[in-house]
């Protein structure tokens, strides 16, 4: 059959036998977090692959914020996320975290904290903490962020590992409300069907 694809019939794209490609596009892995409205917490939306933080951010913006609203987005390399143990049922992660031995001793850095509050859902931002290491931060969260409801898993990210949108970047989402053509609601046609039936 003669091809109907302009890329094939105009660009002389070959249709010879298939070979494997060279291992080149196994780029780094980043996790993406987004904020839908100013007063809402950031939550994990999914991963992207990219060669560096900046491109991961751009890709994440296209992949996870091309509809509805967005007020903030950040990416972090997956390998830089510290993950706690997982628990289930009424068992909270905080049962497995010991109290801090030595608190802030000298140099501290800030760490971002994320809770998994329901299995099957996504991690949600809970707060920022100053500590000398991720391990110390984890032991400190117990006193600061514990509450009655069980937490099934904690992610801790060093703030400096994050590539985040800044206040002045928010204009990149200014045009989202204009892109109605991406939404189902822009394609109403009930009137046309009704009129068609009446003509029959």
């Amino acid at each position: 059959m003669e091809s109907l694809d302009p890329r094939v019939n105009r660009l002389n794209l070959s249709t010879t036998e298939l070979t494997s490609k060279a291992p080149l596009d196994q780029l780094g892995t980043y996790e993406v977090f987004s904020q839908l409205k100013e007063d809402k917490p950031y939550f994990h939306v999914g991963p992207v692959h990219a060669p560096n933080c900046e491109m991961a951010f751009l890709f994440a913006k296209e992949q996870f914020s091309r509809r509805q609203t967005c007020t903030g987005l950040f990416v972090v390399e997956t390998r830089n996320i510290k993950v706690s143990v997982f628990t289930e049922g009424e068992d909270t992660v905080y049962n497995y975290i010991s109290n801090p031995g030595e608190l802030a001793n000298g140099n501290t850095e800030s760490f971002e904290l994320f809770h998994l509050k329901k299995r099957g859902k996504q991690h949600e931002y809970i707060g920022t903490i100053e500590a000398s290491s991720a391990e110390v931060a984890l032991s400190m969260v117990k006193s600061e962020f514990i509450n009655d409801k069980p937490v099934y898993n904690i992610w801790i990210i060093k703030t400096s590992d994050i590539e985040s949108s800044q206040d002045e970047d928010k204009i990149i989402w200014d045009t989202l409300p204009d892109k109605k053509f991406r939404d189902a609601i822009a394609y109403k046609a009930a009137d046309k069907i009704k009129e068609f039936k009446e003509r029959q």
């Binding site: 780029l27 780094g28 892995t29 991963p47 060669p51």
Partner: peptide, 16 residues
């Protein structure tokens, strides 16, 4: 892809 090869990042399985 050749131009983008970046030894500073690492491929790992996504977390969730």
């Amino acid at each position: 892809r050749e131009a983008l090869l970046a030894p500073k990042t690492e491929y790992v399985a996504p977390l969730a």
